[in-house]
Design a protein around this nucleic acid. Structure first.
Lengths: 121, 121
DNA sequence: ACGATGTTCAACCATCTGGTTGAACAAGGA
DNA sequence: TCCTTGTTCAACCAGATGGTTGAACATCGT
């Protein structure tokens, strides 16, 4: 995987177990052991997942005796959201421009339904 | 990688080359060859990247003679955005509740700066 | 001081990924 | 019809990933 921040964030969330852990942490902080509880993988595996999340900046860990409570750093989501919105909006605008062009080309008689080709959502 | 849709989308965008290609496609549709142009990897490698993007539903391909123009399916971004926003908001709300609790505990004399522990952003 | 608890480190393994090259295939142009 | 163009398929390779187990480490409780 590439080592830039955005790549680390996307990669971290590309795993359902880790997304699950993020969902769990959105409810409240939790220790590694608590996070591990619902899953039948080893604690070490969960510890690795936490490491991936912290390396991506999505989670921070503090010290509480032997425990290492995990805290969700929701601000990092913004980086992703900004990236996504930028290109979505860009595509959207291009789309509307295309609509205009098509409308101009044929005199506004259709309700711009030029999206009937492949694998749409 | 897990094979659910969200995982495929996140994984697809975890690669900077593919994010780049999405950025390119936000400007306008492009053939595989056109997409490949800026990079010094083989056409086949780019073709694979396109496959990853289409498998994730982010891109659709149509036929134009030998060409396979790629089109950005911006709507799929919504799935991601919804997921992100849900947990960000959840974390945010928990946060505000915590602020309230702390404020109650000590009589509203502080401007709720209880986030001074670990690896903050 | 000592055992129990919570977490991480290290080594290992199977599988996935992103790249390569060479071949196949489909459609246009001479 | 034959060559060229655009793309994909297949096999292969190096490196990353997610899992395992066993050991190490730090801190609490007795």
């Amino acid at each position: 995987m590439a080592d830039d921040e955005l790549s680390r964030i996307f990669a971290a969330l590309a795993d359902p177990t880790r997304r699950d852990m993020v969902a769990r942490l959105a409810v409240g902080d939790a220790t590694v052991g608590e996070l591990a509880d619902p899953y039948d993988v080893s604690i070490q595996a969960v510890s690795k997942h936490v490491k991936v999340l912290t390396d991506a900046g999505l989670v921070s860990q503090t010290k509480d005796a032997q425990r290492r409570p995990c805290h969700l750093e929701a601000e990092v989501f913004d980086l992703m959201t900004k990236w996504i919105d930028r290109y979505r909006q860009q595509a959207q605008e291009r789309y509307e421009r295309l609509d205009d062009v098509l409308a101009d080309m044929r005199g506004d008689d259709l309700t711009s339904n030029h999206r009937e080709q492949g694998a749409a959502s």
